[in-house]
Amino acid sequence: MLELMKPVLDPQNTCIVSKTVFEKTPIRAIFGGQLRSKIMRAVDVSTVNIQLFLTMQLNVDRVKMIRETLETLVNKEHLEGLTSPNMNEVVQAWQQLILDVLPVILILHLKFLDFKPDGCTKIINALEFPVNLEIESRLSSKSQTPEGRNYKLFAVVYHVGDKATRGHYFTDAFQMEHACWLRFDDATVRTITEQQVLQPQDTQVPYLLFYRRGILSGGIFDV
C-alpha cells in the first residue's frame, strides 16, 4: 500500500518536496532505503522527489570499482528540454540523486545484463567489490551517522556464461557460526576462500551483492 503525499515547500523555502509514503512492513524495515532526487533549474524553486528503493541498481559499464558505480549514481546530470512552469520556456536544468536513507540490508543490483529494445547483452567486466563497504558522506544525507554508512558483505549471487539470455546462477554466502564462506551451486555446497568470492573467473560476474549494517545476533539485526 502506498500514498503519494501532496508536494510541500520545505521549511527553508528552497525547494518543493514530494514523497511517496509506503506502508510499514518487515521487508521495508530491513531492505528499504530512500533516494532523494533533486531537479535544479536556472530559475524557479528546485523540486525534490523522495522515493523508496529495495535494491539499488548500479551501472557497471566502463567502471572498475563499486565506489565508481556509486559516484556515477549521484553525479549531477544535465537535463535537456526541461521547461520552467512559471516562464513556460526551456531553461537550463540539472538532476542529482543522493542516498537519503540507507537500509539495514543494502542490496546492490549490478547491471551486467544490459536490456535494450533490440535485445539483451551481457557486460563482462572485472569489477572490484570489497568485503567492507563504506558509503562516503558526500554520497549520503547528512543525517546518516558514520556507523550507519558502514557495511559488510555477506552474500553474492553470480551469473556465469557469455550470454545474457542463458547461463547459470550460484551463490556465495558467509556462514557466521563457523566464520567461513560457502558456495551454493545447485545441489553442491562447499567451503571457499574469501579470495574466490572477491575474484570471479572467466564469464562469472557478480549480479547481486548483499551487504549488512551492524551484526546478526539471535536471529535479529542489531543496528
Rank of each mutant, 00 (worst) to 15 (best):
M1R: 14
E3T: 07
L4I: 10
L4C: 09
L4N: 07
M5G: 00
K6C: 06
L9K: 12
P11A: 09
T14E: 15
V21D: 01
V21T: 04
E23K: 08
K24I: 07
T25F: 00
P26E: 15
I27A: 02
R28Q: 13
I30C: 07
F31D: 08
Q34F: 02
L35S: 10
R36N: 12
R36F: 06
S37V: 09
K38R: 09
M40A: 05
R41F: 00
R41A: 05
A42W: 02
A42P: 00
A42E: 05
V43E: 06
D44S: 02
S46M: 03
S46K: 01
Q51W: 01
L52R: 11
T55F: 01
Q57C: 07
L58V: 06
V60W: 01
R62P: 01
R62G: 05
K64W: 05
K64C: 08
M65Q: 14
I66H: 12
E68P: 09
L70Y: 14
E71F: 04
V74H: 05
V74F: 02
N75V: 04
N75K: 13
N75E: 07
K76S: 06
H78W: 02
G81D: 09
S84R: 09
S84K: 13
N88V: 12
N88Y: 12
Q92S: 04
A93V: 05
W94G: 08
Q95I: 13
L97P: 07
L97I: 13
I98P: 01
L99C: 07
L106Q: 11
L106M: 14
L106D: 11
L108I: 08
F112T: 09
L113W: 03
F115H: 15
F115Y: 13
C120V: 14
K122E: 06
I124H: 13
A126P: 10
A126S: 15
A126T: 13
L127F: 08
F129I: 06
P130Q: 01
P130N: 03
V131E: 10
N132P: 00
L133T: 12
L133V: 01
E134K: 02
L139K: 03
S140D: 06
S141K: 02
S141H: 02
S141Y: 06
K142P: 02
K142M: 01
K142T: 11
Q144S: 15
T145W: 11
T145F: 14
E147G: 03
E147A: 15
R149A: 04
Y151H: 10
L153Q: 01
L153I: 00
A155P: 04
V157N: 09
V160W: 11
K163W: 00
A164Q: 10
Y169P: 08
Y169N: 01
F170G: 02
A173R: 08
F174Y: 15
F174N: 02
F174T: 06
Q175N: 13
H178K: 08
A179H: 12
C180N: 12
R183S: 03
R183Q: 13
A187H: 09
V189Y: 11
V189E: 15
R190H: 00
T191W: 00
T191F: 07
I192W: 00
I192F: 13
E194W: 03
Q195I: 04
Q196F: 14
Q199W: 07
D202S: 06
Q204Y: 04
Y207S: 05
Y207K: 00
G214W: 08
G214F: 10
I215M: 09
L216N: 11
S217D: 15
S217P: 04
G218I: 06
I220K: 15
F221N: 00
